[in-house]
């Protein structure tokens, strides 16, 4: 079990990522679905939102949130940050790309009550990323990941059918 003090760097990262995203060039806004298979907060439909920025030609940082939509809207909410690597080429010029992400996720609302719940590490692969920040639009399709519940020492899967990103600037 990770103690709250040890989580501080991750929280700092979660807080800094959206601020940096708005200050840096190519900030992106993402929306998508999020499915937990065999783990996470529990059965239901979840929506995913994120704010991202490019750190280098291939690296990007995203602050993200995952919220339960059904059966209890807002009953479980997770916040986190991910570091993404464009596998097939620079993120700005490779129209068909693949994205690998490493993320820390923290439950901030559990069963309808605010407070820190389980923490997770996630490794996710988006095998098909179409579009680039240069074109103002990118779709990540059929993303699949491994979710590790740090406290429960349990592995499960996550799945995103579609994540759409917009780069308005």
């Amino acid at each position: 079990m990770i103690k709250t003090g040890k989580r501080a760097p991750f929280f700092l990262l979660c807080l800094l990522a959206p601020a940096a995203a708005m200050a840096a060039p190519e900030p992106g806004v993402s929306l998508g679905t999020w499915s937990f298979a065999g783990g996470g907060p529990g059965p239901g439909t979840y929506a995913y939102g994120g704010l991202s920025l490019g750190l280098s030609g291939r690296l990007e940082l995203e602050a993200l949130g995952v919220a339960e939509m059904t059966p209890s809207p807002g009953g479980d909410v997770i916040a986190g940050a991910s570091l993404g690597l464009s596998v097939l080429g620079p993120r700005d010029s490779t129209y068909f790309n693949m994205l690998a992400e490493l993320a820390f996720l923290q439950s901030v609302v559990t069963d309808g009550g605010p407070g820190l719940g389980p923490s997770y590490l996630m490794l996710r692969l988006s095998p098909l990323a179409i579009g680039t920040p240069y074109y103002g639009h990118r779709d990540r399709m059929f993303s699949i990941g491994v979710l590790y519940d740090i406290g429960a020492d349990h592995f499960s899967a996550v799945w995103n059918v579609l994540i759409v990103s917009w780069y308005p600037f």
Binding site: T33, S35, P43, G44, T45, M69, T70, P71, S72
Partner: peptide, 15 residues
């Protein structure tokens, strides 16, 4: 589509 239902719907929770 991807959809879900409320707790009181009597349909299984999930996606």
């Amino acid at each position: 589509s991807v959809r879900g239902f409320s707790e009181d719907s009597g349909l299984p929770a999930g996606e």
